[in-house]
Amino acid sequence: MLDDFMPLVANVLLQVGYAGMNITSKLALESGMKPLVLVAYRQIFATIAIAPLAFFLERKTRPKITMPILFQIFLCSMTGATANQVFYFVGLNYTTATVACALNNVLPAATFVLAAIFRQEAMGIKKASGVAKVLGTLICVGGAMLLSFYHGHIVGMGESKVHWNYADRMSSNDSSGGTTGSNSFLGPFLVMASAVAWAIWFIIQGQTSKNFPAPYTCTTIMCFMASIECTIIGIFSEHKPSAWSLSSPMRLIASLYAGIICNAVAFCVMSWCIQKRGPLYVSVFSPLLLVIVAILSWALLREKLYVGTVAGSFLIVGGLYAVLWGKDKEVKQIKGGERGEGKVEATKAGGVDNDDLELQLQPPLKGSQLGG
């Protein structure tokens, strides 16, 4: 029961962490921080944070690091760290946090397609579990689009009692012609490109986790490689030393938060979850980020909640549970098949009567696939 529950809790907490990153990073960009500089600092702080854990927790259990393993980790750094984060933060600089979160929800669909192509996920459309995964993914993405691009009437929830003076000042500066611009094509395009890069990372990481089951060491090497890659890109883009200054508190907070929480912690947890439940299970939680961002934006930034927001949130949660149900049912069917094969082998060895075996292999008549 605990093994089924912990991946669910871990993925929900990850989305809470990513929601905080979207808010702090957007405020840092509005204060004048360059997105490529933020990405470079994120990788550097992530490497510093995760390296001690990798050394102390896996020094006795760490498998041998071979050249093929290093090449796989290099591919992970190029896709899941460098390409994903460079595209996302540059895109975030040219659009709003809500649109960025919404368009990032092409991730489950892209991951499902790629996982099916590389045979890490079975389509299984002739089974209820496969239909639930396909429809659930489509419902999640549809709900995300509805939440972002349709407003409708304002939901009467009143105003938040929480007031963040710094956010109020940044919002005021932005509304009066702030530091960041907008591009209705470039921003969304880059965010979608980041989602595709992240989906590729899920596929590569799924194989890397099997070949090198040491998530802390893998994450440390990946972040170290990405820090070199992103720093080189950042230096070519921003030559002035002032652009790399962390004297502003929001720049420092955004860099530390993104590096420690959303890189060091997040990549370790996601690697562990991929190893336990597969890439699709992890990626499908990303639509929850929109719901959390909507709540935090209302509470901290005093944004209004609309009918489209509420309706989209219900669709996202409904699609999420559909995919979880399908994935859980599929896992139990696989485990049941393995147990059935074991009983058949035991029957051949011990001479159990076929009628008795048929009774043993009957599935239970009731029981929730989600609740265990």
Rank of each mutant, 00 (worst) to 15 (best):
L2D: 03
L2T: 03
L8M: 13
L14A: 07
M21L: 02
N22C: 05
T24N: 00
E30W: 14
S31G: 09
G32I: 08
G32S: 04
K34N: 06
A40E: 02
Y41E: 04
A49L: 02
T61L: 11
F74W: 14
V86R: 00
V90K: 10
G91I: 04
G91H: 09
L92P: 10
N93V: 01
C101A: 15
F112Y: 15
A116E: 14
F118L: 11
R119S: 07
Q120M: 14
V131I: 12
V131L: 08
A132N: 12
M145Q: 10
F149I: 02
Y150D: 06
G152R: 03
I154G: 01
V155M: 10
G156C: 08
G156S: 13
G158V: 10
E159M: 01
V162D: 03
H163I: 13
A167T: 01
A167V: 03
S175Y: 07
S184P: 10
L186G: 07
L186Q: 10
F189L: 09
M192Q: 01
A197K: 00
A199C: 05
W201M: 02
I204Y: 10
T208N: 11
P213N: 10
C218P: 08
C223I: 04
I228V: 15
E229P: 14
I232H: 01
I233Y: 04
G234P: 01
S247A: 14
S248G: 02
R251I: 06
S255F: 11
L256Q: 02
Y257N: 05
C262N: 15
V265Q: 04
A266Y: 03
C268Y: 13
C268K: 07
V269C: 14
Q275M: 12
R277D: 08
P279D: 03
V282R: 01
I292C: 08
V293R: 01
S297V: 00
W298G: 06
K304E: 09
Y306N: 02
G308A: 03
A311N: 09
S313N: 07
I316Y: 12
V317L: 13
L324F: 08
K335D: 09
E338T: 02
K343G: 01
T347D: 13
K348V: 03
K348G: 14
A349Q: 10
V352S: 05
L361I: 08
L361W: 08
P364K: 04
P364C: 05
L365R: 04
L365S: 09
L365P: 12
